[in-house]
């Protein structure tokens, strides 16, 4: 690590640990983790929709916790393990969350997806069989403008099942539509 005196004022040098890799970087000290990940580390998988903590698109994990990288200064994570969407897969194998999102239409434009995947990943690590209400709660800070959210919630459940080795899968009507001849069934709303 370079000494502080070798740096122009207002810059910080650090070695960030992201997805287990080391990134020696120099960045303006006031820059957020979001900016440093995207601009210095070249990890553009993490997105932004507001840079004000309002949309969740920038969520990453810091020491396991889901955090909004637009609200976190990069200097704050110098001693932490950061995880981003780029580190989710195992080798060339997709993570169950990634498989479920890709196969179930939980990513349309895919712009909100990295943030949602990271928050869901933190949730499943705590509890691999969450109730829908817990998924809503965990993802309540993430906006998605494309999907209408249901597919995201169900994909998280599906991924949890895959991770547990349970063969639960989303109901058939989510793949092919409901039977238009079927009569009314009471629903919980």
């Amino acid at each position: 690590m370079a000494t502080a005196t070798a740096l122009p004022t207002g810059f910080t040098a650090a070695v960030l640990r992201v997805n287990g890799d080391e990134y020696p970087v120099v960045f303006p000290t006031h820059h957020t983790l979001l900016e440093v990940l995207r601009e210095q580390c070249g990890l553009t998988g993490t997105k932004h929709g507001c840079e004000l903590g309002e949309c969740g698109a920038c969520a990453v994990r810091v020491d396991g916790e889901a955090v909004l990288s637009c609200l976190k200064l990069a200097v704050e994570v110098r001693d932490s393990e950061v995880e981003t969407v780029e580190g989710l897969q195992d080798g060339n194998e997709l993570h169950p969350l990634q498989r479920a999102f890709a196969d179930f239409g939980a990513a349309q434009c895919g712009y909100c997806t990295p943030g949602i995947l990271m928050v869901a990943n933190a949730l499943l690590d705590r509890n691999d069989d969450p109730e829908d209400a817990e998924i809503y709660e965990a993802l309540s800070g993430n906006l998605c403008r494309c999907t209408g959210y249901h597919r995201i919630v169900t994909a998280v459940r599906w991924a949890g099942a895959m991770a547990r080795g349970d063969d639960w899968r989303p109901p058939e009507e989510d793949f092919h539509g409901a039977d238009s001849q079927a009569p009314h069934a009471e629903r919980s709303g």
């Binding site: 990890l43 553009t44 998988g45 993490t46 981003t84 969407v85 780029e86 989710l88 897969q89 997709l94 969350l97 990634q98 498989r99 999102f101 890709a102 196969d103 239409g105 990513a107 434009c109 895919g110 997806t113 990295p114 995947l117």
Partner: peptide, 10 residues
Amino acid sequence: RVDGRAKVTG
């Protein structure tokens, strides 16, 4: 979807 993998891997 053909771009599915790209979208979930960033």
